[in-house]
């Protein structure tokens, strides 16, 4: 891992909704390095979630450029493959399928990874054990607590071993204890797996646990922050 290498390069990105009436991003620019833990903060409507959705290629910017590992997403032919292999997503509201068990949910992204049924099953079990839910593999999300659901969602996000983990208000719907547990889990995953973690939060206390805090306002990055290594001793 090269912690000086820029893996996400966002240049002057503009994104509007409702035929240009709502400006979600208004020339946002930001670089994120490999293995970094970056928290993006700002008031509601400042564009932080939109930015993370664009990095995840769930949507396309009106203008500007987003490059991941040097490849412009706008020029990428197969965004599904990018989403399946390069990005793990954790949302505020867990995105689990209610009719499937926790293990079956974790296997959902793996259908695109051409793993055998047995490999998918074993890997899902390993991931659930990694998030502390090895004994809840056959439980459907409806019978899990909010914190447990979010941990299953994290296991799901890691299903295809993505180098980039994007979390949009992952503790927003949790009580403080469960939120702390989820945050600890994300931090340990970032450290142990060396993934780049971009976390969107409006909670400055949670943002404080990141290596770098990026502040947004009115669709722009107003403070890109500095990492602990850049800040020096």
């Amino acid at each position: 891992m090269n912690r000086n290498r820029i893996v996400i390069d966002i240049q002057d990105v503009v994104k509007t909704y409702e035929e240009g009436r709502i400006h979600a991003l208004n020339g946002a620019t930001l670089q994120i390095r490999e293995g970094e833990f970056v928290a993006i903060t700002g008031p509601s409507g400042c564009g932080k979630s939109t930015l993370i959705h664009l990095i995840a290629a769930l949507d396309r910017p009106d203008s500007g450029r987003i490059a991941v590992n040097g490849v412009d997403l706008a020029r990428m032919g197969d965004l599904s493959r990018y989403r399946a292999r390069e990005v793990g997503l954790v949302f505020q509201l867990h995105n689990l399928l209610p009719t499937l068990s926790a293990a079956a949910n974790v296997q959902v992204p793996m259908y695109e990874a051409e793993l055998s049924f047995w490999d998918r099953r074993a890997k899902a079990q390993r991931l659930l054990e990694a998030v502390g839910l090895g004994d809840r593999a056959s439980t459907p999300p409806t019978k899990l607590s909010g914190g447990e659901r979010q941990r299953v969602a994290i296991a799901l996000a890691l299903a295809n071993d993505p180098p980039l983990l994007l979390a949009d208000e992952p503790t927003g719907n949790l009580d403080s204890k469960a939120g702390e547990m989820v945050l600890d889990l994300l931090r340990s995953i970032q450290r142990e797996r060396g993934v780049t973690l971009v976390l969107v939060t409006h909670d400055l206390r949670i943002a404080g646990s990141a290596e770098r805090i990026v502040r947004m306002l009115d669709g722009r990055v107003v403070d890109a922050g500095v990492t602990s290594t850049e800040a020096g001793p």
């Binding site: 989403r83 995105n95 992204p109």
Partner: peptide, 9 residues
């Protein structure tokens, strides 16, 4: 969700 986790069309 399926599209977000990388399912192709």
């Amino acid at each position: 969700i399926l599209r977000a986790v990388g399912w192709r069309q």
